[in-house]
Amino acid sequence: MTEPIKLQPPLTDEVVEKLKTGDRVEITGVIYTARDMAHKKMVDGHQKGEPLPFDPEGQIIYYTGPTPAAPGRVIGAAGPTTSYRMDRYTPCLLELGIKGMIGKGPRGPEVKEAIKMHKSVYFAAIGGAGALISKTIKKAEVIAYPDLGAEAVMRLEVENFPAIVVNDIHGGDLYVAGRAEYGAEEASEDSC
């Protein structure tokens, strides 16, 4: 197994161009959480001329809604949620400068096209490993939509957050490749 590629946001075109489907990465620095309702609010807000709650240039969004931090802890369990639910908002956010997304599960064709067009990258984290992943989060702070509770936008400081490149700018897709390699049947990209 090759050593993971170290990444530090904000990501640049040069860094993203080098990433390939199947690459393991470790992210250190600041990432932002957002899931269903936060995506809707950010994109609806943008259409009304409001700025995003953080400067999107080169940043990574992590699709997660953590459990509350127990006393003395930074955060609770914080694994990825299923990404396709964010698909309808993703092209707009990539256009605004977001470079990376972390989640789980396949993306739709529009998102894959937008990833190529805007030179961005989609990573998978290990779904259901929320306890393990939480240990890479060193600081967490709600920066927008506190009324959304677990769905609020948080600024996270992470150290060696592990993820794997699913969709790169060359059109690669690890879910399709993985299934084709091990499946007896033809790979299917559909999702319910």
Partner: peptide, 19 residues
């Protein structure tokens, strides 16, 4: 890793999954 996650959850008292 999933096995390790379950161990960490139990020993360090962190929910297995955020959901």
């Amino acid at each position: 890793l999933l096995k390790e996650n379950a161990r960490v959850a139990r020993v360090e008292h962190i929910p297995i999954c955020q959901d």
